[in-house]
Design a protein around this nucleic acid. Structure first.
Lengths: 143, 143
DNA sequence: CTTCGTGCAAAAAATTTGCATCCGT
DNA sequence: ACGGATGCAAATTTTTTGCACGAAG
């Protein structure tokens, strides 16, 4: 996934229409590329691009995007789920500090090592998530 | 993490008390070893072991257990978060079907390949999560 | 025109919090 | 006894749904 254009083509290919709201949501996610963002934040960002966009619209679209493998949904940050756009051209994973919540990017990807094993099980892999949890040096020293 | 005993010792070591509620919650998680379980299910299971246990108690304990690296919290299954006990003696990851939600276990672990890379960043890794998403053969054929 | 998408309003679900009391240690 | 843990009740926050209308292809 290189740019917004590809996402939009992918949507069309699946009979999804290109509404301004949807575009605004994708823009918000795109602007946040590489970081996690919660539904609430996506909603506010979307508002500034297309005022009036409803929260339910945001959720409905996040669900679609997730099913299509365009975004990821994860649970860090206590309560609300966070989302992240998947960009192949900068494919990466995260290490998340359990102390302060800070995240850093890991560029290595472990998938290649076990693709075969998995497809033996009859599953067709279309996406994956790899996250490391630990403590950054600051938080580690505080203990 | 081999058995409940170790979890209990780990709690004591961190000044957490061993209440019957907490024990019941751990038991519920333990009984579910290897599978995901939502807070609601944990609560019901806990009730049968120690009736009266409150939902808030369940959540407070799940938070503690997660912070201690004893359980994992994930988002599949639309709404609620799901939890899973981490057992070293049967360390594994999951592949999750985006169609029907079915999960299967992957025993290979990708972590060893990139431990060094990560610790270079100053992070101390204490836990990790690796999840594959795709379609099981049934759901794949339906498309 | 046909189908999908949206806003609105409301509900349901999930999670969190304050506080008085209770119970492990 | 002390300090953490619990239950209760209530509030918040997050997410989902039904429906009539509007808009994209």
């Amino acid at each position: 996934m290189v740019d917004k254009g590809i996402i939009e083509r992918k949507l069309k290919a699946n009979n999804y229409k290109l509404t301004p709201q949807r575009r605004a949501i994708i823009d918000a996610l795109f602007e946040h590329r590489g970081r996690f963002i919660a539904a609430g934040e996506i909603h506010s960002k979307t508002l500034s691009r297309h005022s009036g966009t409803d929260f339910s619209t945001v959720y409905r679209n996040l669900e679609i995007l997730e099913k299509m493998g365009i975004i990821h949904k994860t649970n860090i940050r206590g309560g609300a789920a966070v989302y992240e756009l998947i960009c192949d051209h900068s494919h990466h994973h995260h290490i998340i500090c359990k102390g302060c919540g800070k995240t850093e990017i890991i560029s290595a990807c472990p998938l290649e090592h076990l693709m075969e094993d998995v497809e033996d099980k009859g599953f067709t892999v279309i996406d994956h998530k790899f996250e490391l949890y630990g403590y950054c040096s600051k938080c580690y020293n505080k203990r």
